[in-house]
Amino acid sequence: MARASDDNLTALLMALVRSGISDAPMSPELLPRFAVLPDSDWQALLSMARRQTVTGLLVVALEHLPEDIPVPPAVEFALMAEADRLELNYFRMSEAVRELEADFHSKGITPVWLKGLECARFYPRPELRELGDIDLWLRPRDFSTAGFVSSAPDGSYHFQFQGFDVDVHRDYYDISHHEGLPKIPSPEAELLMLNVHILKHACSTGIGLRQLCDMVQAYSRLPYDEEKYKAACCNAGILRWTVLLSSFLGKYFGDGSAPLFGQASVNPAPLERIIRRGGNFGHHESGRQAALSRKPLLRKADTFWRMLRSLPFALRYAPAEALYYGLSLIRGNIKTNK
C-alpha cells in the first residue's frame, strides 16, 4: 500500500493525540484507517510524535486501540520504552521540585511554578507528559531574597539542580506590557502565560504540538472566567492571535475546546505550518540542530534570523510583540555580553 500523505498522517496522529489527551478510545469511524495502516506509516506516526514530543499521548492512545488493530511490535515496544523514560523523568522532576520548594519556603520565598510539571497536572496521566526544564517565577522581592542575579538575555536566572535545568523567571508573562493583566496566580493568569509562551515561540524559532495540547487541557481543567480572560487578551494586544490559537485547537480538538470570544474561527493554517515545520520548539527544522551545536554567536544569529523570518506572522497576529521579542533578545544579549 502506498505511504499515506502527510495530511493523512497528520489526521491519524491527531486522532491518537485526542485519544491520549482524554485517556479514552478514539471515534470508531477512524478505526478502519488504522486497521489497514502499513508498518511504514506507523513508524512515520512514531517519528512525528517524537518530533512533537507527544509520544506519551500515543502510549495512552495505544492502550485504547482495539486488539484487532495491528500495531507493529517495533512501534509498540518503542512506546513502552518511551513510557518508562517519561515516568522516570516525571518522578525525578517531581522529587526535585519538592526539594526546591521546601528550600524556597525555608527562606520565606513562595515560588510560582510554570509550564512543564504544572501542565502535567492537566492530563489524566501526568507522568506521561514530556518534561524538559523546571520553570518558576519569583516576585521581585523574592528574586532579591534568593540572591539570584539575572544571567540570561531575558533577565532570568539559570542553575542546575539534581540534573535538571532550572529557569527562574523575572517576568511571568513573555509579553511587552503588563498593564491590565490578571493577578498572579489565577486561572486567567496561567492561561495567559501559557498562551503568550506559545506566541513567543511561534514568533521565533517555532513551537510544537506539546504546548498546544497543554493549552487545550488547561482550557478544559482551569476554572477560568472567560470575560476576564478575554479582557486580559485584549489588554495584552493578542486577541487576534488567541482567536488563531483557538481556531487551531477547535479544528483538532473539537468546537468549544478553546474560547473564540464570540468571533468566527479563522483558518489555522499559519499556525499549522509552524508546528509541522519544526516540531518541538522548532528544533527539528532543517539546519536548527546544526545551529544549536555551534558557537554562541552563530547560534544566536540563527535564532535571530528565524525571528526575522517569522516577522510577517508576528506582525499579522501580535504586532505589539513582533518587535518586542527581537529587540528584547538583542538588548538582553548586549547586557549579558558586557
Binding site: 495505544l62 492502550e63 486501540l65 486488539e67 500495531v71 509498540e76 515496544f77 513502552m80 520504552a81 518508562d84
Partner: peptide
C-alpha cells in the same frame, strides 16, 4: 508492561530489548 492483551518485558542495558 501490559498493553493490548500482551505482556512485554523491556530490558534496558547497553541496548534496549523487548
Amino acid at each position: 508492561h501490559k498493553s493490548r492483551g500482551k505482556h512485554v518485558l523491556i530490558m534496558y542495558g547497553r541496548s534496549t530489548h523487548a
